[in-house]
Structure formats: C-alpha cells, structure tokens
C-alpha cells in the first residue's frame, strides 16, 4: 500500500461545515414532522371521528362483557392454540433433527406448507373442508377444539423452526458432556439440551404468543355462537348493531392491553439473555 502524501489533513470544502449540515438536516426533519401533524390535525373531521369512535355510552355498555367474555375467549383461544402449537412444534422440530430421512423430509414439508399458507385459509379449511371431507366426524371440544387445532397447526410450523434453531444453538459440548456421563441420546436431549434451548428461544416463543393472540381473531370464519365470540367478532357485532365504530376501538385497546405488556416482557427477557451470555 502506498501512502498518499497529497491528502490534505483538513479538506476545506466550500459551503457548510459538517456541524452546520447536521443541524440543518435535523431541523428539516422536525419541520416535516410538525407539518405532517398539523396537516393531519387540521384535515381530520374531529367531530365526526369522535362520534364514530369515542361514544362513551356505547363504550360503557360493552363492559363487563368485553372483558369477561370477549377478552377471556381471546385469551383462551390463544393459549389453547399455543399449547397445541408448542407440542406439535416440538415433535416437528425433533423430526427435523432426526437421523431418519423420511422424518426430516416430512417435517420440512409440513413447515413449508403451513408457513406458506395464510392462517385464514387454515381456519376455513378446519371450519369447512374437514367437516365436508369427513362427514360425521367432530373435532373434540367444538369451536374451542377447532380454534386450538387451527391456531396450533399454523403456530407449530413457526415454533418448530424456532425450537430447532434453539436446539442447534446449544453447544455441541453439552451433548458430549452428557453422553460421556452415560446419558442416552434421548435423555441428554430431554434433560440437558431442551431446557437450555428453551431459555434461548423464550423471547421468540413469546413473540409467537403475541402473533397468535392477534390471529385468534380469525375465529370469525369458523362461525361461533354468542358465547364463543372473541374480541374482534364481539367488537364487529356490536359495531353493526349500534351503527357506530366505538366497539372496534375498545376491542383494539383490549388487544393492546395484552400485547404491549407482553412485548415489554419479551424485550426484558432479551436484555437479560444478552447479559447472561457466557
């Protein structure tokens, strides 16, 4: 490498200095922001928005049902789907890592299919196609069973990949240490590798829970009874009976009530995991 002796130490350019340019750029960004907010505030029809979205008496008549029924069902659907997804995802992840070729292949196909399909299609499939294809069969648990199955099928594909990545992230030496102590391969996996894998994947798994929480709104397409409605369906029904959008807003806030704290928990766990890195 040659040393370029011609380089000036202080390149003096005409016009603004670096500091001036930085100041100008930041000023411009603030100006755009203020202009956008002002335009929105001036352009929006606040009276109409308030009428449509913030009718207190309508909001008030939603309570307590929106919590005791709709939110409860949403949580129930989510958790049941999560449990099914986790169990199925674990099986698929282990199949994916199996030394038996057909298992790996089958798991790969499952993941590709269910990751590639919209969750909505899976719900329609479970709700319509399965009863048509297998007349007389009934998915156990009625709507709850169907939701658990549909959400679980979708979640399992994502979770399988997450769990597989977590298992592979556990250092090889852990398995070797376990095997050298006399653990069988299966016992080493269950006692040593999987517990460590789960610590690694706790944040992405919690994220998956948040996604499922939102996807549970697809229950809409299964056809549910009044008692089985969850937040989205409940909000939409009420919005059409009252001819007002306030219930949608309230339902949305109920979602955020759960997803924002969960997101906070995920970030906390990620930060802690960063600290705990050996």
């Amino acid at each position: 490498m040659t040393v370029d002796t011609g380089t000036e130490l202080k390149p003096r350019r005409k016009g603004l200095t670096r500091r001036q340019r930085r100041r100008l750029s930041r000023g411009a960004q603030y100006a755009v922001f203020v202009a956008a907010v002002t335009a929105f505030a001036a352009g929006a029809d606040w009276g109409r928005l308030r009428n449509q979205f913030a009718q207190w008496d309508i909001a008030r008549q939603m309570f307590p049902d929106v919590i005791t029924l709709a939110l409860k069902n949403t949580v129930l659907y989510t958790l049941s789907g999560f449990v099914v997804g986790l169990a199925l995802g674990m099986v698929i992840a282990l199949m994916r890592l199996s030394s038996v070729g057909p298992y790996r292949w089958l798991a790969g196909v499952y993941i590709e299919i269910f990751r590639g399909l919209p969750a909505l299609l899976i719900f329609i499939f479970i709700g319509v196609a399965v009863p048509l294809a297998f007349p007389g069969t009934e998915i156990v648990g009625g709507t709850y069973g169907k939701v658990a199955l549909a959400l679980g099928l979708v979640a399992a594909a994502y979770m399988a990949e997450t769990i597989r990545a977590g298992i592979q992230a556990v250092p090889r030496g852990q398995t070797e240490a376990a095997r050298s102590l006399g653990f069988s391969p299966a016992r080493a996996m269950v006692s040593i590798v999987i517990p460590q894998a789960f610590r690694i994947i706790l944040p992405p798994l919690t994220n998956e829970l948040v996604l499922l929480f939102k996807d549970s709104s697809l229950v809409l397409f299964l056809g549910v009874t009044l008692e089985e409605r969850e937040l989205s369906k409940y909000g939409r029904d009420l919005a059409s009976t009252t001819a007002n959008s306030t219930p949608i807003l309230v339902a949305g806030l109920c979602y955020l009530l759960v997803t924002i704290p969960l997101g906070f928990v995920v970030r906390r766990m990620e930060a802690k995991a960063q600290e705990a890195v050996r």
Partner: peptide, 10 residues
C-alpha cells in the same frame, strides 16, 4: 474432562 469444561449452565 473437556478443555471447555462443558458444565451444564442451566
């Protein structure tokens, strides 16, 4: 006994 100890960190 391994070079990298391989204790179970959990």
């Amino acid at each position: 006994v391994f070079q990298q100890f391989n204790l179970f960190p959990h």
